[in-house]
């Protein structure tokens, strides 16, 4: 009965091939659309910012109360930073302009530069610096202990690095932009490098999503 065995084997192979092809077919139909990678996650119940007190560029304290009721974009930098900081502040200026179409941000949005170089950045120096990019930008800094009360809870790292042999130094620092919600929710962290159109689109989506969800 060799020929019967052979037919059975061919049938078995055919069934296997068909099953494999069907499997691929259905897998393709049910798989998520290609080209839509996960870029980030919104936590259902995001952690809240705890209290901190910085010295604002306007001469007043800048605290968590300054952020309450606003959509705040926080960036940590310093004025002796020639590349990343001015580039990011220029990007933030453009982002804010693009977000004019997101009414809630246009009315309640703000940008805050926090200097991680309090030894060189006085509040007065910061006022001139951020004002150059946008006169509505806020800025603040504080001595290391009070600064740490904010950077510590946000995971912002900063380290002094000497430049050459003199007294000059740079500060390596986290170059992320953070989005804080009106209830002080730590909503999102955007990693560098930053591009205004992408940043504005994501922030707009997040604000829209939070307003649409109950």
């Amino acid at each position: 009965m060799a020929s019967t065995d052979r037919s059975a084997l061919i049938l078995l192979v055919l069934v296997a091939v068909l099953a494999f092809a069907l499997g691929i077919h259905f897998a393709r139909r049910t798989a998520p659309e290609a080209g839509a990678p996960v870029e980030g996650m919104l936590w259902p119940d995001p952690p809240r910012l705890e209290s901190f007190t910085l010295d604002g560029a306007d001469g007043k304290p800048l605290t968590e109360a300054t952020l309450r009721g606003k959509w705040s974009l926080l960036f940590f930098g310093f004025t002796h930073c020639p590349d990343v900081c001015p580039t990011t502040l220029a990007t933030l200026r453009e982002t804010v302009k693009l977000l004019e179409e997101t009414p809630d941000f246009a009315q309640q949005g703000q940008v805050v530069l926090v200097s991680v170089d309090p030894a060189r950045d006085t509040p007065e120096a910061l006022a001139g610096y951020v004002g150059h990019f946008d006169r509505n930008f806020l800025a603040a800094t504080a001595p290391p202990d009070r600064l740490a009360a904010l950077t510590g809870q946000l995971g912002i790292l900063h380290t002094r690095v000497p430049l050459g042999s003199g007294e000059e130094y740079s500060v390596d620092h986290t170059a992320s932009i953070l989005l804080i919600g009106p209830g002080l929710e730590r909503l999102a962290i955007f990693s560098a490098p930053h591009a205004a159109p992408e940043l504005a689109a994501k922030i707009g989506q997040i604000i829209q999503f939070l307003q649409d969800s109950p």
């Binding site: 590349d83 990343v84 790292l157 690095v161 430049l163 050459g164 740079s170 390596d172 620092h173 986290t174 170059a175 992320s176 962290i189 990693s191 560098a192 490098p193």
Partner: peptide
């Protein structure tokens, strides 16, 4: 004038 490179590593800018 110095020549520098900014390196981004895990979200951190290094000069």
């Amino acid at each position: 004038v110095m020549i520098h490179e900014t390196l981004l590593e895990e979200g951190r800018a290094r000069m």
